[in-house]
Design a binder for these strands. Sequence first.
DNA 1: TTTTGAATTGCAATCGGTTGCAATTTAAAA
DNA 2: TTTTAAATTGCAACCGATTGCAATTCAAAA
Lengths: 343, 343
Amino acid sequence: MEKEVTIYDIAELLQLSAATVSRALNDHPAINIKTRQRVQSKANELGYRSNTFASNLRKKTTQTLGVIVPRLNSHFMSSVLAGMEVVANKAGYHMLISQSLESAANEKANARTMFNNRVDGLLVSLAYDTESYDHFAGFIKKKVPLLFFDRVTDFMECPGIVIDNYKAGYEATRHLLAQGCQQILHVTGNLRRNVYNDRMEGYKKAIQEAGLSERAVQVIVNDLSAEAGVVLARQIMAMEQKPDGVFVASDICAVNCMRALIDAGYRIPDDVAFVGFNNDHVSQIIDPKLTTVDYPGHQMGELAVSTMINHLTSNQPLGATSSIVLRSQLIVRASSKRLLGAD
Amino acid sequence: MEKEVTIYDIAELLQLSAATVSRALNDHPAINIKTRQRVQSKANELGYRSNTFASNLRKKTTQTLGVIVPRLNSHFMSSVLAGMEVVANKAGYHMLISQSLESAANEKANARTMFNNRVDGLLVSLAYDTESYDHFAGFIKKKVPLLFFDRVTDFMECPGIVIDNYKAGYEATRHLLAQGCQQILHVTGNLRRNVYNDRMEGYKKAIQEAGLSERAVQVIVNDLSAEAGVVLARQIMAMEQKPDGVFVASDICAVNCMRALIDAGYRIPDDVAFVGFNNDHVSQIIDPKLTTVDYPGHQMGELAVSTMINHLTSNQPLGATSSIVLRSQLIVRASSKRLLGAD
DNA sequence: TTTTGAATTGCAATCGGTTGCAATTTAAAA
DNA sequence: TTTTAAATTGCAACCGATTGCAATTCAAAA
């Protein structure tokens, strides 16, 4: 059982041509049903496995989708990937996954690899510091469909799958205002990325609409990590004029900040109300539970891949769709409820 | 720029043979350095990209590792994958990832796909209900190296990368005993999987050693999900003889249970002490912070892949190594500290 | 200038399926 | 029974890179 069995072996044993065997194995309708069965059972008997390379080489398709994400290990991203995998698997596609670790250089290298591996399509969520998009030019040129999700860009003529971050930011802020907050601090990530910039714009808009002064707009940019949350708490404690509301663009960062503040004696939401983002597990574990924006990661992954596959099989131009917006929703919990009966 | 450039195109333009071009592109030492440079710069100029299939077809190697995990979206697993990706990427390998969703049937199908795709090696963490291992037989037969991590099995002659779950369970329980707990409840997952069974055995051993009666051994099996944690809290509240210590084999499940108990008025650790497993993010967010077992996921991923690649390149027999045990460690936090000055 | 060995390069087969088109067989219609 | 169309099957040329071995080139030694 050392040597690999090929269609030629089967063909010889069955006194058929390789062409017929190939067709039989692929359920080609032109092949007589009896022949087909004979071939397939013989293939099973011999432990035949199709050689994907030979097939790909000839067919010029890989049944593989490339995925480049900033990090694999975040609650949100792993949900997205899980969703992607389910749909891809069902449609007979495989996923080649790599992470940029938030570095544009890595992203570039990974894109190159995906390119050489001739993925049928590429799904990307941009790294923190990606500014140039040259590394995707090859895909465009070779007409390999490209799709961005979550962290998207307007610089490329590619569809993006997103939530309405502007609206989410706006509503989160409105909610804090409605709870009586007057000085709302917004903490977010690199503003080059749409997800963070849009949320901030929504935040600003809400502040302006509320008729608050310019000074009411207060933004801190960090990397939204757990550690950054602890640092943030120290920053807040050191402020001469403390915020009475904080809107953080990530639950992980938010809860760590809350925890540090609580340990230091702050009362939430009375001293300061909190709203996070992502509806991460931790948002329901912290006490008080964290008001947050539900972010349908799994669904986003499913949608990204099904859009891609739909395009690949039906050959509809992907460029046509400019973006797909998923519904997100503010989930109000105790961390921001300052008024009785408020929702 | 529509048509793909091949080595033949380059060969013709440079009045060379395809063989020479191929060697030049691969830095073959037999090729004159000037020729090599001419070829490489021409390749760049034309936007040449190597056709991986043709190469694989000829070389019979894929530079791809298959990974099958129960779920992508858990804190632990995504850390493992992140670690794997870093090492694989650095060594020029790609990762084909799929999830079994805890179903043996899916695992089987995924293994088949990996097999057909001729991954150079396969890394597996077993599904909840996998009982037969036939779907891995092909890999053994074809001498494709196979390696299990975390959820391993003794039924196959394959190396496994694990932590000492027995010891971890033992120490966690000893810790609770040392804190004065007399009735320790152990909550864990499917006992068919080593990770859960071993932890339980460690737990039992510690109970026995403490000279407690048979009745002191109390085990509940669930799926360790967040929801299961809430259910667990109800179960505990309904018990006539309540435990004064709970050792849960997963942080997620533990914290959700704690949260429900706290909301119901229980005091932790005074009424009941808690120890979790995994050192998940949430363990530091819950109040009181959760004592847990640190589980080096990222490191486990790195090690799994580097072991595999090392084997692939040096051709050392993988079978020789039977298992690699990573160090894990009990991290004591407030959820289990009942004695002053205890650690 | 000839010899000789090393350095380069090319030939041609090979990896294993796929597919357009032609050839053959089979079955239905005349 | 012959004609004709439909159903099957086979031929042979791909897909693009790799590599053992032979051929050629080149330069140094004789």
